[in-house]
Design a protein around this nucleic acid. Structure first.
Length: 300
DNA sequence: ACCGCAACCTGTACGC
DNA sequence: TGCGTACAGGTTGCGG
């Protein structure tokens, strides 16, 4: 379940079930799921055994579990996770049946609920990596982030997010607004669903050139993204099917509240015009032809 | 340096 | 029933 609200739902579940517990062992059942862990699956498992899991953190669509220090090493390491298109982190009784797409299993020393990474399409991944000072910083100073995600921008729901910096970066770009929203080095956490929803709320077409965006329009898009992601988070995220579930396997309810994404031919909730689906980067883009008029010179 | 596209996977839905 | 095609919530790496 892969955009910011869905990842945050999972992060909260991990906080409840795994924080403070000691890992007994990790088992990698599919090497592709740890392909970004350069030293390989055996090293991945070896680094986890015996470590205690601290409170989980998140930036955009990435989340990580800081690990207790091995010796005096500072600032330490973390288990980093990205769910990709179909990844799930599930918590449950250790002796329950193995899921068909179980990729990594992590057992705890207390013998209680285990943590499983299940991923049908294997676009997601796990890795153990160093924590480094955050380049973004925030009100509490620079925090620590996993080294592989230092290039990921702050997400619009975190304190470190700087709307003015986002606007300046937007104006420097030469692309369409939706491409920019999906670029995780500009703004993180937004994917295909919430990009369409944010643009519908802001009444801006997806092909609008970034260099012509006004400060007020950029603010509308940002507010749209913040509001729609907060609303989705409040009801457990968006789940079209059982692939997108929280750590207990439960689906979210935001699908019912989508105004644009997946609403082809449905009447726009503002003006009644049927929602249009366009091809976009080998994917889809949904918009209202009246509320979100196409710009004269759009940028794909 | 930036932009756009192909590639990486498995599964489901649908038309014929 | 079977086969082919289209599509699915993401990111990286490469060519231009």
């Amino acid at each position: 379940m892969p955009e910011l609200p869905e990842v945050e739902v999972v992060r909260r579940g991990l906080d409840r079930w795994t924080a403070g517990r000691a890992i007994a062992s990790a088992e990698v059942l599919h090497p592709r799921s740890v392909r970004r862990h350069a030293p390989g699956p055996a090293d991945f498992a070896g680094r986890l055994a015996g470590r205690t899991v601290r409170g989980p953190r998140r930036r955009g669509k990435y989340m990580w579990l800081p690990l207790s220090a091995e010796q005096d090493e500072a600032p330490g390491e973390a288990l980093l996770a990205h769910l990709g298109m179909s990844g799930q982190l599930l918590v449950g009784e250790p002796d329950r049946e193995r899921e068909k797409h179980l990729r990594v299993r992590i057992g705890f020393a207390d013998g209680g609920h285990d943590l499983r990474f299940v991923d049908q399409r294997t676009f997601g991944h796990l890795m153990v990596t160093d924590l480094v000072p955050d380049v973004v910083g925030g009100p509490d100073g620079p925090g620590l982030v996993p080294e592989p995600i230092v290039h990921i921008a702050a997400d619009p729901l975190e304190d470190a997010f700087d709307p003015e910096a986002f606007f300046r970066a937007l104006r420097r770009r030469r692309t369409g607004i939706k491409r920019a929203l999906l670029d995780q080095s500009l703004i993180s956490g937004v994917g295909n669903i919430y990009a369409d929803e944010a643009l519908w709320r802001a009444r801006i077409h997806w092909a609008r050139p970034t260099e012509t965006m006004t400060r007020a329009e950029a603010a509308r898009v940002l507010e749209g993204a913040q509001e729609v992601m907060e609303a989705a988070l409040a009801v457990g995220g968006t789940s079209f099917d059982s692939l997108y579930v929280d750590v207990d396997g439960e689906s979210g309810y935001f699908e019912r509240s989508l105004d644009a994404y997946g609403q082809r031919d449905q009447p726009c909730r503002r003006c009644g015009t049927p929602i249009r689906r366009d091809e976009f980067m080998n994917r889809s883009s949904y918009s209202c032809p009246v509320c979100q008029p196409r710009p004269r010179r759009g940028r794909y």
